[in-house]
Design a protein around this nucleic acid. Sequence first.
DNA 1: GGACCATAATGGTCTGACCAATCTGGAGCA
DNA 2: TGCTCCAGATTGGTCAGACCATTATGGTCC
Lengths: 203, 203
Amino acid sequence: MPPRNHVAESVRALLAEEQVAPGDRLPPERELAARLGVSRSSLREGLRRLADLGIIESRQGSGTYLAPLDLGDLFEVRLRLEPLAARLAAQRRGEEDLARLADALAEMRGVLGDPQLFGEADVRAHAAIVEASGSLPVRVLFAAIADLLRHSRATTAGNDDLRAGAVSEVAAIVEAIRDGDGDAAEAAMRDHLAHVGASLSAA
Amino acid sequence: MPPRNHVAESVRALLAEEQVAPGDRLPPERELAARLGVSRSSLREGLRRLADLGIIESRQGSGTYLAPLDLGDLFEVRLRLEPLAARLAAQRRGEEDLARLADALAEMRGVLGDPQLFGEADVRAHAAIVEASGSLPVRVLFAAIADLLRHSRATTAGNDDLRAGAVSEVAAIVEAIRDGDGDAAEAAMRDHLAHVGASLSAA
DNA sequence: GGACCATAATGGTCTGACCAATCTGGAGCA
DNA sequence: TGCTCCAGATTGGTCAGACCATTATGGTCC
């Protein structure tokens, strides 16, 4: 259980549950803290994190507001950063990275029939690639946007054909990383993201 | 004066001043708070921000440590994200964005002889491009790495020829953005970053 | 109907305390 | 001498309550 994200994620869950729309005002800090059962100081550290991610915006005397977020913009960023992550992973991966990648890929194959579990395995595979990149900025930036990607992953995981396609695409990425072929890894990741992007546009 | 970054930047300044090396332990929170003249709660919100950026890492009972950071990795991320920012800026820029860009470019020309001022103007120009992109994720990610870029900018700004070159390169970017030509803007930004990268490698 | 102001609401900060995990150094023993 | 083990100190994590600064609200007065 990651302690750092705990409050931030609880707040995100609460917002989703109450259907707070972008631009809406959040409940006051004092009330949020009480509802989540934490002190206001701890809540504020969580809110600070969300504010740094651009998810919320606080205005003294007025309130805290949910910022608008364009999933298309988010995907464009992914489209630029994940191929880099794949390239670096191919150049720097260690034995432990390869093992993690193999595990994640095997799990994707194993839970192909379950959209929910498949989505989680997919997340782990992408996380393993980012981790293998060995780049601190890449890891940090992905951590920042990771929890914003839940929607798009849900879209992908919900379609049977997409899941099957994703497995072979991810397999190609993993293979290129294992071979240490940066160009191929980057290309394979672009290919994968192109398919994901197409399905997102259709949805 | 941006209140949000205040503590985080003060801490960064202090670390630079005391030559805290990556992996070193920072002074205890209570001492840092006293030295910066803020309460421990405010200090912690600042530290939380640095921790989210991957700059520091806290271990309960042990201390807070400065994480290692590879400037080369950072530049690779920049190399991927800034061209995207330039492209989006060309597609979405408003009149206000164009005015800011023109101002920043004019200022770069005006302070060409002063490395310090030039560096600041350069930062403003890049910030204006990011702002004009209109993409929340892009803005957020750049805010996250902005203060990590000081070193590389110092390198660029310290060389007379590089400054002159940077002006014409940035001018080309601004022109492409004004024309609404995303392809040209992205290419011009790549060109600019290639020059910056070459100077970094040399240094 | 509109301008103005007292009041409430809300985020920003501070102080001081206690808890939990970790580190450190000395006591005791083999 | 060298090792183990444990108690205390150190340090980050959290909490509670208070006050300040800014903004929103609603009523009053013209």
